[in-house]
Design a protein around this nucleic acid. Structure first.
Lengths: 323, 323
DNA sequence: TCAGGGGCTGCAACCGGTTGCATGAAACAT
DNA sequence: ATGTTTCATGCAACCGGTTGCAGCCCCTGA
């Protein structure tokens, strides 16, 4: 059907190896010959078959990107940044969604393993043990999880959580709830650790909660029952859902309860009240993840750990604690 | 590095072809032999290389899914539905984002062409001419665009737009604005056509607008200047941005201006006022797109056209026209 | 006893490229 | 004129699988 390298060779009167070199090592072929081959190739609509090339070179020039849930607005900026960055380096990024299911995640990695040069694992739900085992099949860069001996990008959510709690404490809140996330989430663990270490305020941990608006909505009753005046939610979606749940129960935010989210997604800026949140450097993380992965192809270099800073963005969903 | 079919053959004392058949045509190999081979394969951690297999069979069992903008919440439900549906049929879906750039879109299709069995083109920005040309390289299913001779899935946005306009007219609005979308968008074209055909109300078309909150925000001034009392926005993001823009200018929704969106994204249900919108059957479209594509592999059957119904969901962003 | 047939396996070519090595011609130095 | 490089190209093996064909063994029926 489509033209192959042999068709081009035949039509331009040279050997296939010359055609091959015309595309993968142009400096090795005579300018005149090269132009002729290129013209014929253009004419026949020939494009090198990347899959076939990968078979011999062992390089697909593809990168896999695995996320827990594409519909969480946290991920798209990371995905887009990674794609743009990779494209500029002649790599392509394929995205797959695990639906928060570790089983699916593992299967996806297996499938991807032979079709990409490396995988970006974003907020994985798998256990470290399984991740280490799968690492034999394909290089990883792990985002938002700490796995021994693997290139890793962390967003410093511990620091972010501390800032958020201090912010609430500064507004006079003495009893705060932390809405934790999914069980397998490293981020959630870090937040809980930060909460446990907080001084001067009492933090109750509620959860685990689904990392979605629905999860936040469902947590509203529990939050009210716990008698807190401030809440730090696992992420912005949970925060937005919670605010809606409180609103339905006639509780005003930030009047009666203050809410802080995490991620700084776009719709947090457009909801009312505008969400106070811990901004995550998602785009930077996406770019850096690609860099780390490509770099790891170069040599058997030491795995790297990059920690990116987070920052608190104060908007309208937090205010003075009620007396 | 990883075990190949030859390693397994050597270790189990059979020819590679027997190993191959053990995996791709088990009924052709003796039960005893098969079990031995399977045991050895398990032992060596062998997994068939899908890329290599694709080289001879011409089937990768992969599907490409191309969208204009992953961060538009319209797409994730479609993507997730397509992925789940495909997985159940032993296919995998790889997603790529074009950043609303036709150039990137074309390049992406070219790259994908040899690595997947077919491509789901969702809301493409390319011209029909280019799409038809690319069709020679790889089978398509097109979603939300009409391309002659290609399997197509349409969501009946024309009908949806008519319902939305009738809804506004029924509330007493006599002058309505349509915020159109990107130039290449078929959906936008259909909406404009429906608007032009509307009777009993006057519809002014404003745009093109970026299909984002930012686009809606930017359109607020123009909407006010146009003197309308009702607006149909290209999608929910635009509607939400517009409402925010109007709010900043002290204009109440739906008090002074009514707004209808399109898509029925989750955050439209959580913003206040809750958005009146035209719901799109995205998940169904994703599943059906996969079905159509897989079906088209079976034979050179006639291309199909499926039109899915839309429905108006009335919430709080629309109300009686002001006298 | 022998022909015929089914079940299982091996052989080897092939998919579409890449690449180390050999070859030949031209260019250069001596 | 001869020896040495350099440049361009061809040859053939290889990547990891699949598959049509042929051969072998064993069973069956006449």
């Amino acid at each position: 059907m489509a033209a192959t390298i042999r068709d081009v060779a035949r039509a331009s009167g040279v050997h296939v190896s010359t055609v091959s070199r015309t595309f993968s090592a142009p400096h090795l072929v005579n300018t005149e010959t090269r132009n002729r081959v290129l013209a014929v190739a253009e004419d026949l609509g020939y494009r090198p078959n990347r899959a076939a090339r990968a078979l011999t070179t062992g390089r697909t020039h593809n990168i896999g990107l695995i996320v827990a849930d594409i519909s969480n607005p946290f991920f798209p900026p990371l995905i887009k940044a990674a794609q743009a960055h990779a494209r500029a380096r002649d790599y392509h990024v394929f995205v797959a969604d695990t639906d928060e299911d570790p089983q699916v995640e593992e299967e996806l990695i297996q499938t991807l393993a032979k079709q990409v040069d490396g995988v970006l694992l974003c907020s994985p739900r798998l256990s470290n043990r399984v991740i280490e085992r799968l690492h034999a099949d394909v290089p990883f860069v792990v985002v938002n999880r700490r796995v021994k001996g693997m290139p890793t990008i962390l967003m410093d959510i511990g620091q972010g959580a501390r800032h958020a709690i201090e912010h609430l404490a500064g507004l006079g809140h003495r009893r705060i709830a932390l809405l934790s996330g999914p069980t397998g989430s490293w981020t959630s663990g870090e937040m809980c650790a930060a909460a446990a270490a907080a001084e001067g305020v009492e933090v109750v941990i509620l959860g685990p909660n689904a990392p979605t608006e629905r999860g936040g909505l469902a947590a509203a009753a529990e939050v009210l029952a716990s008698g807190v005046t401030g809440v730090l939610a696992y992420n912005d979606l949970v925060a937005i859902g919670l605010i809606e749940g409180l609103y339905e129960r006639g509780v005003r935010v930030p009047g009666e309860i203050s809410v802080v989210g995490v991620d700084d997604i776009v719709s947090g800026r457009l909801n009312r009240p505008k969400l106070t949140t811990v901004a995550m450097p998602t785009a930077a993380a996406g770019r850096m993840a690609v860099d780390l992965l490509l770099h790891s192809f170069g040599d058997g270099a030491t795995p790297t750990l990059a920690t990116l800073e987070t920052s608190l963005v104060v908007r309208e969903s937090t205010g003075e604690a009620q007396k």
